[in-house]
């Protein structure tokens, strides 16, 4: 049995490639009347992300710099910022890939600023909540006391899976030109999630979502600029979901809308017989 060890860090990997200027928009509501720009010189090494640069500034230059971050790998969606003119995740963008000597970082547009690079996402999550982004079933008893699993075929999964990759980072709303002028517009994130649940074969809540979805600030306000899809770090296509929602409603009005069949419940697997070809999992190392 071969033993794999972690690759050694080469000293050349830690060599400073160049110095980059981070121009960061600072704003402290208790001190500043308006946001102001502040510059920092950051030594860049191979593979360093914008988030690494911000961490370096916080550790070495200014501990008061405020920003959100968590996973460092484009999964949690916390570190959304306006980097060099585009909404991006700071952890998902390497400094050298930006190909610039100055990196301008601002908080996400279309949100109020709490402090420095921290946007107020409360309205964003309110909109998300308004479209009831969860499974709605007519059989409430089955949801509360399940007797089995709701069947779903691989084809039915494909209908919505790309929209399920949303990490709620809020980049799409900050890129949306309609959100920029219309505060009440539900926005691409919530609309894409509404579509994700509406087409889920296990869900029966499309009627309940209709009022919010097709209100005067719902899907019909989308101009199909497509900026939301362009900036999504997970490859979700909210603009496409919105067009599909429009199409569904149009077909419904023409009375040619294909009614989704109700998903049936399949009983639990009584006895699990493991596949012999699949090796057993190793013993747990943490007890």
């Amino acid at each position: 049995m071969s033993e794999t060890s972690a690759p050694e860090v080469q000293s050349s990997d830690l060599k400073v490639i160049k110095n980059v200027t981070f121009e960061i928009l600072r704003y402290s509501p208790e001190k500043d009347e308006a946001p102001r720009a502040q510059k920092f010189q950051v030594p860049v090494i191979k593979g360093m992300t914008v988030l690494d640069g911000l961490l370096w500034i916080k550790e070495n230059l200014d501990a008061s710099l405020a920003y959100r971050s968590s996973c460092r790998m484009g999964v949690c969606g916390s570190c959304g910022m306006f980097i060099n003119g585009l909404p991006r995740l700071a952890c998902n963008n390497q400094i050298v890939h930006l190909n610039a000597d100055t990196i301008t970082i601002k908080p996400l547009p279309n949100y109020n600023i709490i402090r420095d690079l921290v946007p107020d996402l409360e309205g964003f999550f309110d909109k998300h909540e308004s479209i009831q982004p969860y499974m709605i079933r007519e059989q409430v008893e089955e949801l509360n006391n399940p007797t089995g699993e709701f069947f779903q075929s691989p084809d039915e999964l494909v209908d919505y899976i790309q929209f399920a990759y949303c990490i709620k980072c809020g980049l799409c709303l900050s890129a949306c030109p309609t959100v920029a002028t219309d505060d009440n517009f539900i926005g691409p994130q919530a609309l894409a999630q509404a579509y994700r649940y509406n087409v889920d074969s296990r869900d029966e809540g499309a009627k309940e979502r209709e009022e919010e979805l097709y209100s005067s600030h719902g899907v019909w306000r989308c101009h199909f600029a497509g900026a939301c899809s362009d900036v999504c770090p997970k490859g979700v296509d909210p603009a496409f979901a919105i067009q599909l929602l429009k199409q569904n409603m149009f077909m419904q009005k023409l009375h040619v809308h294909k009614q989704k069949p109700a998903t049936h419940v399949i009983p639990w697997v009584a006895e699990h017989i493991p596949n012999e070809k699949i090796p057993k999992a190793p013993e747990r190392t943490v007890k």
Partner: peptide, 12 residues
């Protein structure tokens, strides 16, 4: 739904 009807006629 009223908005959907208005939009429907807008397309038509």
């Amino acid at each position: 739904m009223r908005e959907s009807t208005l939009w429907f006629w807008h397309i038509i």
